[in-house]
Design a protein around this nucleic acid. Structure first.
Lengths: 231, 231
DNA sequence: CCATGTGAAAACTTTCACAGCG
DNA sequence: CGCTGTGAAAGTTTTCACATGG
C-alpha cells in the first residue's frame, strides 16, 4: 500500500514556482508581513492566484479560508518541501574558473542550507589553496574526497567536453545530484537527478523572444494603419 | 487577416530545445558529420525523435524523407530562427561582481553573435577601467550609453534589490530584451522580453528532485522486500 | 525500404467557477 | 463576507501511429 497519494502528482513548473514562493516569503518575513493571500503572492510573482493555490495545495492545506496564509508557517512548510526539516546539503564544485569562483563566492544559497566543502581543479597553481575558504583539490582526488566527505551535490563548472567524465566520477563516488553548468548533455545513468543550467542557451532564447515580440508589435502597428476603422 | 499562420504556435519548451539542437549541430559539423536522422539527434539530447521532428517541423520542412537532415543546412536554418540571418547582438552587463565578470569572460556566446560592448558598476575603482576589454561605466551613464551604442540586450548581474531600478533604466533607454540574474522578479512593462536565471533556485529544485528520487528508490526497495513473489 | 511530417489520442497544465469553511 | 481548495473545462505539449515521398 505505502503512502503513495494519487493526488501527489507534482508538476515540474510547480517546483520551479515553489522556490520562488520561498524567496518571496523570506522577503515578506523580513518586512514583518504576518499574513498574505494567494492573490498578493501571485501579484509579487506575476502569476495567477489560482496557480498559487494549486501549487501550495499539491503539498498540503496550509491556508485559512477567509484570511489567507500565515507567512511564518508557510515559509516553514515550503522549506520542509525542499529541505526535509533542517537538513544541510554538502556541495562541491568541479572547475574553479571564473564561473566556478563566482558560484563559490555567491552567498545566496547559504540560507537554504547549501554549503561548499570542496572544490576541484586541474590547475596545479590552484590545487592546495583555498578559494572563498573552500579547499581546492586535484581532480584525481575527486572520488576519494566526495566519498569521504559524503558530499551530496556536485556542481560541474568545467569548460566543456570534460563534463561527462566528471559526471561519471561523481556518480561513481556516490553523489546524490548534479548541477551541470557545462554546455554538454549529461545522461543520468542511475536515478541520480541532473539539472542543466546553460547560460549561453539563455541568450539564444532571449534573442528569439526579442524577435517575436518585435514582429508582433510591427504586425499590430500594420493592422492599425491598414484599417483605420475599428471593427 | 494578416500573415498569422494558425500552425505557427511555437511551444516554450520547443524554443529551449532548439537552442540545444543548435549546440549539437555545431559539434556534429566540427566532427564532419554530414547528415543525421531525428533519432540520432534525439539520442544526443535524451529526448524522443518525434519531439525533434515536431520541433523542427514547426519552423519549416528541413528534412528529406528516407535520409534525414543535412547538418550544414539545418544549422543555418536553426541559426536563422535565433539570429535572423547574421545579425549581431550588442549586449551590456550591469554589475561587475564575480558573476558579472564570469559572464564577461565567457566566450560561449560569441559564436551566436552576442558581444558585450559596455559594462556598468557602482564601484568607483572599476569605473573607467576595462574588464575583458569591455569598458566599465558608472551606473549613472547607463541610459546614455545604451541609447548611444544602440545596445539590444541588458544583462542584470547586480546583487539583489537594485535590479528593478536597473531594469527600469534599461527599458527607458530602449533596451530590446533583458537577462536577469538577480534574485528578483522583474515585471516587463511594455512588450520587452525579460528572462530570469536564478542560480540559487536551481539548487533548491535539485534538492527537491534528489529527495523525490531517493524516496522513490526506497519505496521500490520496500516493495521488493515486502512481496518476495512477483505478481 | 527508410525517415519525415502530421492528424489524432493521450497526458499534462492552467484557468474557470464555485462550494464550503473561518 | 472573503479567501481557500478543488471539480470540471479549456488549453497546451507530448506521444502514437501512419500516410507520404525520396
Amino acid at each position: 500500500m505505502s503512502t503513495t497519494d494519487k493526488t501527489t502528482v507534482i508538476a515540474k513548473a510547480t517546483i520551479a514556482r515553489m522556490g520562488m514562493y520561498l524567496r518571496c516569503l523570506l522577503s515578506l518575513q523580513q518586512q514583518g508581513v504576518k499574513t498574505l493571500s494567494s492573490r498578493e503572492l501571485a501579484e509579487m510573482m506575476s502569476v495567477t492566484s489560482e496557480q498559487v493555490r494549486r501549487d501550495l495545495a499539491s503539498f498540503g492545506r496550509f491556508g485559512k479560508r477567509g484570511s489567507g496564509y500565515d507567512v511564518d508557517r508557510l515559509r516553514l512548510e515550503v522549506e520542509a518541501i525542499f529541505g526535509k526539516g533542517s537538513r544541510r546539503w554538502k556541495c562541491c564544485i568541479v572547475g574553479v574558473g571564473s564561473l566556478g569562483t563566482a558560484l563559490l563566492a555567491s552567498r545566496n544559497i547559504h540560507k537554504w542550507g547549501f554549503r561548499y566543502v570542496a572544490a576541484f581543479d586541474n590547475d596545479p597553481a590552484k590545487v592546495g589553496t583555498r578559494i572563498e575558504r573552500v579547499p581546492v583539490y586535484a581532480i584525481e582526488d575527486l572520488k576519494a574526497v566526495v566519498r569521504k566527505e559524503q558530499i551530496a551535490i556536485g556542481v560541474i563548472a568545467v569548460p566543456g567536453p570534460s563534463a561527462r567524465a566528471i559526471a561519471r566520477s561523481l556518480h561513481e563516488a556516490g553523489i546524490r545530484g548534479i548541477l551541470n553548468f557545462a554546455p554538454q548533455v549529461i545522461r543520468e545513468p542511475e536515478k541520480t537527478p541532473v539539472l542543466a543550467v546553460d547560460l549561453s542557451q539563455e541568450f539564444l532564447k532571449l534573442s528569439f523572444y526579442i524577435q517575436r515580440a518585435e514582429e508582433k508589435a510591427e504586425r499590430e502597428e500594420d493592422e492599425i494603419n491598414a484599417s483605420s476603422h475599428v471593427e
